[in-house]
Design a protein around this nucleic acid. Structure first.
Lengths: 127, 127
DNA sequence: CCGGATCCTTATCGATACTG
DNA sequence: CAGTATCGATAAGGATCCGG
């Protein structure tokens, strides 16, 4: 539970609520579709910017850079710039990134497993 | 992989790309912080609207109803209206909802496990 | 090829007020 | 208590241009 509160000494409590707000901040960062799709797409490979752009259907240049910067800042992806011309920039998952990807895989599996359930639930609801 | 493309007969291909776009749609629905926090908060319990509102820090009335409708439509939460006055509405996870919650738990665990990593990565990046 | 900066168009969100 | 509807403020997102 991300928002869980704790009891304890004033100092502990302060530290824990600070940790909680940080946890919430991180959660808000990564719990959006583009970030998760990027994590999922990079996978075990190493991909260039344009490759990512082509693999993730519908993502704009801006969203991709924006989310890549955010993921890089949080230490989930590694950005490797080759000083060539034209430039070559490669993105890889770090160890924390790969760990997160394991759970994102779970979400993707879930989506496919319950596709039928969801489709019928929608039909039922829309009446 | 959510966006994976397949080969096959024209019919199969059409069905699979349709399934893929549906998968992507579902993924876009649930991959947002409020939806995931709701899934996480309902958990194994049954909660009323206001209880949810109080437990999920920072969520507005509007976001809560909006996401609950969406989750209900996709068959992830069950909405039980008691015909009393004042009304009493209780939300519970369905079986698909509980299955998804398992993976969301994984994301929350991940967040707490890598809190330190992320905090130092941020400091490093911000310089 | 990559990414920043700009402008401009949407969509999101919160606050408020109102019904059963 | 739970939910819908409306309305501004504001943030997100897309398109484009330019510089490294």
């Amino acid at each position: 539970m991300v928002t869980k509160q704790f009891e304890g000494s004033p100092k502990d409590e302060a530290d824990l609520t600070r940790a909680d707000s940080l946890a919430r901040e991180i959660f808000s960062d990564i719990a959006n579709k583009w970030a998760l799709l990027i994590i999922e797409t990079v996978g075990e490979r190493t991909l260039r910017f344009t490759e990512l752009r082509n693999e993730i259907e519908g993502i704009s240049h801006k969203m991709l850079t924006q989310n890549l910067r955010m993921l890089e800042r949080n230490g989930l992806v590694d950005r490797c710039v080759h000083p060539t011309v034209p430039p070559r920039v490669e993105y890889t998952l770090t160890e924390p990134g790969r760990a997160l990807r394991a759970t994102v895989d779970g979400m993707c599996d879930w989506t496919h497993r319950y596709l039928g359930h969801i489709e019928t639930a929608r039909h039922q609801f829309d009446t």
